[in-house]
């Protein structure tokens, strides 16, 4: 194997997933987009601080710490896009299938 273990594709995907979840959590917590952007920069700095980690056990510890922090900051009412399940516009105005029966009684 030519690649050093912590920098494999799988591990970078794990870290990307953590980062994405961190950004989602930041978005849930910030009411304004500017606030979200500032939090994004702070989150990015925290991730960049662990960029150098090349020891697998150290990496596992860092990932665990991040998971704990994400669990701590988990939002009780996260943002859901309007048309997605749980969103405010989900299944609104569904087109009617078939023929509508006329009221002729």
């Amino acid at each position: 194997m030519s690649q050093i273990l912590p920098f494999t594709e799988a591990n970078s995907k794990r870290v990307a997933s953590l980062f994405r979840r961190a950004l989602r959590t930041a978005y849930d917590h910030s009411m304004k987009f500017e606030a979200y952007r500032n939090t994004t920069i702070a989150v990015r700095q925290q991730f960049e601080a662990n960029k150098h980690i090349s020891d697998p056990t150290e990496l596992e510890i860092a990932i665990k710490k991040t998971e704990e922090k994400l669990a701590e900051w988990k939002h009780p009412d996260p943002y859901i896009p309007p048309s997605r399940p749980g969103g405010t516009k989900f299944e609104r105005n569904i087109p009617v299938k078939g023929k509508v029966i006329e009221e002729d009684w």
């Binding site: 970078s12 870290v15 990307a16 989602r24 990015r44």
Partner: peptide
């Protein structure tokens, strides 16, 4: 880099 891609995809969302 990979984290930038995550940021860009979030912005696209």
């Amino acid at each position: 880099d990979s984290l930038d891609v995550v940021e860009v995809v979030m912005e696209l969302e």
